[in-house]
């Protein structure tokens, strides 16, 4: 196969960026998109150019490091797939592919296709945990948890924190990410203890980071590589309303 690439190149966070065009010749349809970038980089290094910087690690769709917008769609238009698992067999010979970094104010570009996603870590630090210390935990079977609850919790907990939801949203909203964690923990008895505190704190951290608001377009669920659905966002909205009501009236 032969593909043309238009890739966003930006030397550093403060530098101006622009698109450069590269040719990927004789690539195999069995390669992943990132393996093709590896090959392009090999050629660039050999010819004295500067290789394209991009994030990736596990290359099996679970670490959440890879973050490339492919022809306008984060991780590419194949459903439930990260960029590292997007194989070239889904492109046509001779295609031109545009590669851009995640675009959001809270995700500044570090270099080329690499962005800084610390904002996600800060949101988790604000409350995305169960406040238990090591040791002293009761037996894992002490509280039976309905299978349906665990399954729904896991449907949300599969989030890999890649940020594609933010990248896809026209408002650069992080609702799907935040709601996944809020839903996961609020569905389990262990996490329910501090559910009000958690949702208020995480929403505040999300807003402070500068993400946009949700306008329910559904782009986030369309690109989520783990197929998390926006009903988690409804659940978070519910949790939020509940937390405010409880804070205001029950206490």
């Amino acid at each position: 196969m032969h593909l043309s690439l238009r890739v966003w190149r930006q030397k550093s966070a403060s530098a101006f960026g622009r698109f450069e065009t590269y040719e990927a010749r004789n690539v195999s349809a069995d390669m992943s998109l990132l393996e093709m970038l590896d090959e392009v980089n090999e050629d660039l290094i050999a010819s004295g150019g500067e290789p394209i910087a991009f994030d990736s690690d596990c290359r099996e769709g679970i670490c959440g490091a890879c973050s490339v917008v492919i022809d306008g769609v984060p991780h590419g238009s194949r459903h439930g797939t990260t960029a590292c698992q997007l194989h070239l067999r889904h492109f046509k010979d001779g295609d031109t592919i545009t590669l851009e970094p995640w675009r959001a104010r809270p995700f500044p570009v570090i270099k080329d296709l690499v962005v800084d996603r610390h904002a996600f870590d800060r949101i988790i630090q604000a409350g995305g945990y169960v406040s238990v210390k090591t040791g002293g935990a009761p037996d894992g079977n002490a509280i039976p948890i309905p299978k349906t609850d665990v399954d729904r919790a896991m449907d949300a907990a599969v989030c890999i924190g890649c940020g594609a939801c933010v990248a896809a949203c026209k408002n650069a909203s992080a609702m799907l990410f935040v709601a996944s964690k809020v839903s996961h923990l609020s569905l389990l008895p262990q996490g329910r203890v501090e559910r009000e505190r958690r949702v208020l704190a995480m929403v505040r951290a999300m807003d402070d980071a500068g993400f946009g608001a949700c306008t329910v377009t559904g782009s986030c669920e369309a690109v989520c590589p783990k197929n998390i659905r926006i009903d988690v966002i409804a659940r978070m909205n519910r949790e939020y309303g509940r937390a405010l009501l409880k804070a205001g009236f029950v206490e």
């Binding site: 306008g72 851009e100 675009r103 896809a168 408002n171 909203s173 946009g212 329910v216 377009t217 369309a222």
Partner: peptide, 22 residues
Amino acid sequence: GNRAARPIPYERSRLPGASHAA
């Protein structure tokens, strides 16, 4: 706020999954 959250737009923007009304 939403506009400010994405100061640099995409060169190719597709908004997957979003209806026209949305």
